[in-house]
Every structure is written in C-alpha cells, then in structure tokens.
Nucleic acid binder design. Structure first.
Length: 942
DNA sequence: GACATCACG
DNA sequence: GACGTACGTGATGTCC
C-alpha cells in the first residue's frame, strides 16, 4: 500500500548520531587491526536502543530512514563559499568510520540515505514534505534547531538528547515565531557556527521582534526605511543582500532529488544474520551479545583477544587471511550468477573491481572482461570479449563460447557500479573508470589502493599492484607475461583462454580487496587520511574527465613543421659531415665526442664513467666559445647544437604528436600518473603534454598546433612564482613575504637586498643572478651547482649564497630543521600533511647529498602540487554552469577550452578557485596570484 | 635495458 | 680532506 493517511515516517538524523557517538565515547579501536571504531560502536548502540524503543511504543513508525550528509561540501557553498567554512575538518580517526556507519545502518536493515551536494537536513525536509503531502505523519529525530522550520501539519520533531517531543509550541519558544517564519529569523540573526552572516548586530531576540512586527522578511526589508532605531534601520538597508543570501543558506531545500520513494522506506524486520556478521566483524563483544539475546539468536564467538579495545597497539603484521587459491575463483557465464554476485556487493556496500582490456591506452582499449572481489579469496571473472585462438578460415576473430551478452552484463553491472551506497575498490581506478565510462558506466564512489599506498608510502617504493601484493600480502601475483608473452609475439588479453584469464583477473580483484582491507585502517595511523580523502581520491574522476576530453591538435601545422625540419636536418647533417671531414651518425653522442675531441683535437674533452666523452649542451656551448683557438670545432659544436634542437623537436613533438591524435576524437589524450612523482606532482605520459616546448622561439611554434575548436578559445591560467611564495611562507622570510604582498618584482628585490643596489634601473645581469639564487634555494643550493649554472667561479657563487643566508636567515633555519626532521622521521611533510619519505637521508656517501636536497625541495614542490590538486578537485563544481572544460595541467598551469562568449566569466571563476585553493586547510602568509591568458592556440594563450 | 640527451615546471 | 652536487619529471635514440 502506498504511503498515506495512517502511516508514520521516522527520519533519523544519522550524521548527528555519529558526532554524538564519537564525542561520547573514548577512542576505541578494533583489536585485530587497529581500525578506529568508537563512533561506530556508539552509533550502533543508539540505533539499537531506538529500534528497541519502537518495539514497546504504541506510536511506532510504519516507515523509517536514516539520513546522512554526503560530504561537507554542498550546493550552499556555491551560493556562499564561506558557508560552514570555519568548521574544523572531522578528526582523523573519525573519517574512516563514516562509511562504516552507513554499513551499520544497513546491517540493522534500515535504509541509509545520502545525496551528493545536499545536506542531510535537505533530504529530511524533502521526505517530510512528501509525507505531509501524502497525508501521513512524520517525526524527525534530531536536536538540530535548523530542522525546526519543518514542524507543523503532521511534522514533528523528537529531541533524542532531551528525550522530548518538539511541536509548534517548542518552536515558538525557541524562535519567537511560527515554523514558517523560522528561516526569516535565522536569516537575520545569522549563525556563527555555520558561518551564516545574517545582519550584523541583530540577534535572535531582535530578529524575532522584527519579524513579529513586519510579518515576514521581504516585507521587513521593503519597509526597512520605516524602522525608528537609526542603527538598526541602516543595518537592514546596507546588508539587505547579505540577509537574503543568509536566508538562502538556512532555508532547507525540500525538493532534493532522491534515489528512493517513501514506499521504499517501509519498516522491515531485522535480518539477524547480516547484523551479527557486521557486529562480529567490528569485534563488538558486548553489543553483539546483547543484540543476539534481543533477536533470540546465537551470538557468534568473539574471543577475548579479538574484542575491540582502546589500546593503540599497531595491527599485527602476520596475515591471518585466506590463502590465495586460484582454483576457487569463479568464471561468471550467465546472468543469474552475475546478479547474485552483484546482490552480495550491494548488500555489503563494497566490491573490488578490475577490468581487462586489449590495450593499456584507455582511449583505444576494448573491454575484454570484468572481475569482482567480495572478500579475501572470494573473487570472480566475467569474460565478455574473449575470442578463440585461431580465428575462422579467413583469420577473423571468433567469439569464444561460454560468455554472456556484453550489453546484458553491462546493464546488470551499471546500477551497482553507479550506486552511491556501494564502494568500488580498484587499483589505479582511473584506468577502469575510463574504460567503463566508454561503455556508458560512470563508476562512483571509488577507493583506490594505489593511492592509499601513495599517501602512506611515497618515496619508499612504487605503488604498482605486483609490488604492493608482494610487499604487503606476501603474495606474488601471476605475471601478465605468462598470459600475454612479451615482445613482438605478445598477444592481447582477448586471445587469452578464459580459464587462465579467470585466474589472473580474479586474482587481481582479490589482491585489490585484500590490500584495501589492509591499508584502510592504516591511513589514519600514518596521519594521511585527509591527504588521501582530499588530494588523491577525489582527483581520480577529475583527471579521468580531463583525459577523456583531450585537446585538439592541428595535424597540418605539425606535418608542415616536420617537413621543414626534415629538410633542415639534411642540410645541417651535410654541413656537419663536411666540417668533420667524414660521414658519421650525428645522433650518436659517442661519435660526436670522438669526432670533436679526438679527430679534430678540440681541447677539454672529459670522459664520463662509461668512458665516452660528455657532449651535452653545456659542453658543446663551451666549445662554441673557442672561435679563436679552434674555429672548426666551435662551428661544428654550434651546428650539432642546432641539429639536436631540430631533431628533438621533430622526433619527440612534430612527428610523435601526429601519431598521438586519436582517430575517433581527433584529439590528443594524455594520461596522468597520480602516484608517479614522489612530491605529489602529477606526471603526464603517452604522450607527455607537460613538456611541450616553450623556452625557444622555434619550439614555441609547436604550441600553435594545440588549438581550440571553432567558436571556442583556449585559456591558460598559471600560478605566479608559487614555489617562491611557499618558500617565503614556510621559511618565514619577512622581506620576501612583504615583497609578495606588495606585488614587487621578487628577483629584483632579492638582488637589491643582496647587493644593495636600487631596483630602479637595475642591471639585468644582477637580477638574473638573483633569480638563479632564488631557484637554487628551492633546490637545496650548493656553491658548485650555482657556480655551474651561472658560469662563475665557485668561490664567488659561495659568496652569493653566504650573503643570501645572512640576509634571509630563516632559509638556513628551514633547511636545517627540514633535514633534522627527515633524519628523525624518515620523511618530510607538505603544509597539507602529504608525507614524502626520504629513506636515503641517513645514508653515507654522495647519496646523502641528493637526499638532503630532495628533502629540502619536497615540502616546497609538494605544497605547490597540493595546492593545484585542491584547485583541480574543486574545479568541476566551480565551472559546472559554464561551457568550459578543463583539459591539461602543467604543474602550475591549468588549460581550459571554453566557448568564446564565456571567457571572462570562466577566467573569474577559475582564478578565484586557484587563488583560494589553500583555504581553509592552510593559511598562507603570502597571496597566491594567478595570471590568465587566452587565444586560439596554446602559444597565444600562455 | 642502460645511458645520454633534452623537453618542461 | 675528499667527494660530487642544484629539485621533480618523460621520451627518444644509440649501443651493448
């Protein structure tokens, strides 16, 4: 029967329960692995008492739901970015418990509802309205005064803290007005906890008086001029807009899009088995026993040494988990079996997912199969695109037997992979998300074991699955080579026998699930939960979108350049052979060295450790200065440098980029490694679009091939001097910070401070030297390095450095402290808490020098990387309404494609996000400044 | 697959 | 006193 008259809906404010439970109980951890579970225990206790209470109540609900906040970010942040901005982030040991409280809710057979971009209060408002309109009753179980606006017409509140019913009378007592005017009073009074501004100087009492007198907020604002008290009158006139925004913030949205209807919320009997499973998994001894008695079932045994305890002993290293048994993996060949596995995933709220394809290039790969992992040792493979070995008479691929229809399988997978209540766990999920997105499935929400490892172990080792499995599970996975072979004879995954494929693919899902279970409780022990949750995990869908968008590249521009380069190379080659007096391979550094230093007798050749002459650009540049003593050598060196520049541009850029254009999209799709660079930077591969030439005129022309489609414009926004600003902040250098605040030329300022020359009319070479020193500091400067960079005597370079340290003593201090910290802890941290390990810091020999400089550089480079990561995570929401797409990231630059009409608005939005990216997690003493450029191509925009 | 070289921030 | 030195990446070509 549909929800209506005589029905009674209970809406439980789940988020409030969690925080109350957290603060009411001492820190409690699961004995077996140290997972914090205190809030979960308290939450279960509250829910259990609630359920018991209903059993003995005459007014028991017919329908019930537990409502949660999806995240702290909602549509209200669009209206007013500062909304709830002064709320501290949830404690580290609470964060991992959020998903567990959803699991707990489901274990009690109660629906857990959360909706992205909306607060729990909005969902409550929506369901309360629906219940009211259907003619039923609704009780909101919460102490939150913000919900009082909903009271009336069959909607009541019950305050579980005070254990009392809240009706019209209680609302009027609290706000002085009827529920429908509560938002007006709140809009005027504001709320310092939620950072709702309201009207300055007006509190609850005055607000209530004003609304009583004028009827409602709009009338009050319209007639503000009539108010007698001059100060109050002026405030209402001056802050009218702010008051209206405040009302938008406090007014609950009762048309939130919901994944369920009222009828889905009918009260269900508990399922003892599922509940017992959850409680024992949490290792709650007393609670399990108590609830088992209540349900009249046998309580599963939890041994004393397994029970949750509040000691903080680290989780044991030994693996008690199921062994890896490849024969236990299941091949799913029909819909019913797949449906069973998916139902189990839905039930438990998480599933490991892995896709198998024909290529590592996600934009060209075809889906071959999907594997699922539910529990250690319990994994399955769904073959979808396997073909038989030989092919038919004409060599065409023949679909292997025993595979279910691809479209049917995808249709079954889609609702679960997109279900907000089911976590999809993957290793490098960006890959699988892109593959599945091309099959029409938008996977969410996700977890990524690669990124969990990166957050905890950056700098210690890589984060590939094989490595993680061996290191943390003590298990060496089946090498992919044994299935595909290697080299020229390698086959693609669709040619692999299904039985073999099942072992490999299901194992991957199994490993991923086990790694997740192992890593999840460890994140907070390493104090990187916030890093993982705010800088790694949310970046995955953002990067996936960017990579799938790609950037348009004009093939003709590149092709013409390639042809011109080819001609030029032939010409240079002939000239070089002529000067040398013999033909040789100009591309071989070894042969260049022999020609130059042995055959032609140029002095100063130095052999490296491999016995070959060094012929790098710096060496050849020195040779070109020998015009007087060795004109032929100087000429040859100059021509080789020219040749190398053109050869580089042609082979790496103008030729290769043409091949990288995707024939289907006509665009180039790079791939970003999120866990590649130890410092938190991204790395771009296949092709690398983070090193497109810009420094020379010739090279810059390649950027003209990166274009916006007809009617659109490319936008480039980049942080100005971000690393130096971070250095000024971290090392706390007053002169540098002041200079950045005043928008001065920082290198000129440095030169002026160091050499005592005025900034006006400064010799450009002085400024250049200061600039080199500024950068040197970021890299962990040495006299030798600076001397080589500036080509000045070492003693002079050392003198510069000494003077720099003298003038800015905070730099020395920062360096010493950073190295000391690294030596003590084995890692350094960025301002956002990212850990970068420095395992070599206590080594002896030259390695220690490298490690020291890397340790000095890492917090600076890493903080800059964190800042742009935050900007990127926030960007999709910030530009959601605009015809703009984020395409590329180049460390301190973001590139967008936008319709010509929306350029200014997009720049304003993007700039605001980038310049404010550190807030509110980190407060910098220096402003972040972003420069913007636009154009038909990347060269113009930059 | 190691090495040298060179493109970027 | 000697040692080897700017930080972080990826792609290409040579050579073994």
């Amino acid at each position: 029967m549909a929800f209506g008259k005589g029905h009674h809906l209970h809406l439980i404010d789940g988020s409030a329960y969690i925080f109350r439970a957290y603060h009411a109980l001492p820190p409690l951890t699961r004995k077996s692995d140290g997972l914090p579970v205190g809030a979960v225990a308290g939450f279960c206790n509250m829910i259990s008492r609630y359920v018991d209470g209903n059993g003995s109540s005459k007014d028991a609900p017919t329908h019930v739901a537990v409502i949660f906040d999806y995240s702290s970010k909602t549509f209200r942040n669009e209206i007013f970015p500062e909304y709830k901005a002064n709320r501290p982030p949830p404690p580290e040991d609470l964060r991992p418990q959020f998903p567990l409280t959803r699991e707990a809710t489901r274990a009690f057979n109660l629906p857990a509802i959360e909706v992205q971009d909306y607060e729990a209060d909005d969902i409550i408002a929506t369901l309360a309205r629906e219940a009211r309109e259907a003619g039923g009753r609704c009780t909101i179980i919460s102490s939150d005064k913000d919900l009082m606006q909903l009271v009336g017409d069959g909607v009541e509140m019950f305050d579980p803290m005070k254990n009392r019913q809240m009706g019209l009378a209680e609302v009027e007592e609290k706000f002085g007005v009827r529920p429908d005017r509560v938002v007006d009073v709140q809009a005027l009074a504001g709320d310092s906890v939620d950072n709702v501004p309201g009207a300055p100087g007006i509190g609850l009492k005055t607000a209530a008086l004003l609304i009583q007198e004028y009827g409602d907020l709009d009338s009050l604002l319209a007639r503000a001029a009539e108010i007698k008290q001059p100060k109050r009158r002026q405030t209402l006139i001056d802050f009218a807009d702010q008051i209206r925004v405040s009302r938008d913030l406090v007014r609950l949205k009762d048309d939130t899009p919901l994944p369920i209807t009222l009828d889905d919320l009918e009260v269900r009997d508990p399922e003892p088995e599922a509940l017992m499973e959850f409680l024992t998994r949490m290792e709650f001894r007393t609670l399990t026993k108590r609830i088992a008695e209540r349900l009249k079932v046998e309580a599963p045994a939890i041994s004393a040494d397994m029970a949750a305890s509040d000691d903080h002993a680290p989780p044991p290293d030994a693996e008690a988990a199921a062994p890896f048994d490849h024969t236990a993996y299941v091949t799913i060949r029909d819909e019913a079996v797949l449906a069973d596995w998916l139902a189990a995933a839905l039930e438990q709220g998480f599933v490991a997912v892995d896709t198998e394809t024909t290529s590592l290039d996600e934009m060209r790969a075809d889906l071959v199969g999907v594997s699922l992992g539910l529990a250690p040792g319990k994994a399955a493979y769904v073959p979808l695109g396997h073909v038989t070995g030989g092919g038919d008479l004409f060599g065409a691929a023949v679909r292997a037997e025993g595979q279910m229809d691809v479209d049917r399988a995808l249709a079954l997978l889609k609702p679960v992979l997109e279900d907000p209540s089911v976590l999809k766990i993957g290793q490098n999920m960006k890959y699988d998300m892109k593959i599945l997105a091309r099959a029409g499935i938008r996977v969410a929400p996700i977890e990524d074991t690669m990124l969990q490892s990166y957050a905890m172990h950056a700098g210690l080792h890589g984060h590939g699955m094989d490595l993680l499995s061996e290191q943390y599970l003590g298990h060496i996975p089946i090498p992919i080579k044994t299935l595909l072979g290697s080299g020229k004879s390698a086959i693609t995954f669709d040619k692999v026998d299904v039985t073999e494929a099942t072992r490999y693919a299901a194992e991957d899902a199994d490993i991923t699930l086990r790694l997740w279970q192992k890593f999840r409780p460890q994140l907070h022990l390493a104090h990187v939960t916030t890093v993982y949750e705010t800088l790694e995990r949310p970046l995955v869908p953002v990067l996936a979108e960017m990579e799938m968008a790609g950037i348009k590249v004009d093939r003709d521009v590149l092709s013409r350049m390639s042809n011109a380069f080819a001609q030029k190379l032939v010409q240079l080659e002939e000239e070089i052979h002529h000067i040398a007096g013999k033909k040789f391979n100009v591309g071989s550094p070894k042969q260049i060295g022999e020609v130059l230093f042995d055959r032609m007798g140029v002095p100063g050749g130095e052999k490296g450790k491999t016995g070959a002459y060094a012929t790098g650009a710096d060496v050849l540049e020195d040779v070109t200065t020998l015009e007087d003593s060795h004109p032929q050598g100087a000429l040859l060196a100059a021509r080789v440098l020219d040749w190398r520049q053109i050869a580089k541009l042609k082979s790496t850029y103008t030729d290769t980029l043409q091949e990288a254009i995707n024939p289907e999209t006509g665009r180039v799709h790079t791939s970003y490694s999120i866990a590649g660079a130890n410092t938190g930077r991204l790395a771009s591969t296949d092709p690398n679009l983070q090193n497109i030439p810009v420094r020379t005129e010739e090279g810059r022309r390649i950027r003209q091939a990166f274009v916006a489609p007809e009617g659109k414009v490319l936008l480039s926004l980049d942080y100005s001097q971000i690393e130096l600003r971070i250095l000024a902040h971290i090392a706390d250098i007053p002169a540098l910070k002041q200079a950045f605040r005043e928008g001065l030329d920082i290198h000129a300022m440095t030169a002026s401070e160091m050499f005592g020359v005025p900034i006006e009319g400064m010799d450009p070479s002085i400024r250049r030297q200061a600039k080199a020193i500024n950068f040197g500091v970021i890299y962990g400067i040495s006299g030798f390095g600076l001397a080589r960079n500036l080509r000045i005597p070492r003693a002079e370079a050392q003198g510069f450095i000494d003077r720099y340290f003298e003038r800015f003593p905070g730099i020395r201090e920062y360096m010493d402290q950073t190295i000391a910290f690294a030596k003590e802890h084995g890692h350094v941290r960025t301002l956002f808490g990212r850990r970068i390990h420095t395992p070599e810091i206590n080594a002896r020999g030259p390695g220690a020098g490298f490690a020291r400089r890397a340790a000095i550089n890492a917090p600076i480079q890493g903080t800059a990387a964190d800042i742009i990561r935050r900007a990127m995570v926030r960007m999709p929401d910030a530009i959601a309404g605009l015809p703009a797409t984020m395409l590329l990231q180049v460390h301190d630059e973001l590139l967008f494609e936008v319709e010509a009409g929306a350029v200014d608005e997009t720049i304003a939005q993007v700039k605001a996000v980038m310049e404010g990216a550190a807030h509110p997690a980190v407060h910098l003493d220096v402003p972040l400044v972003v420069d913007a450029g636009r154009g038909a191509n990347w060269s113009e925009a930059h």
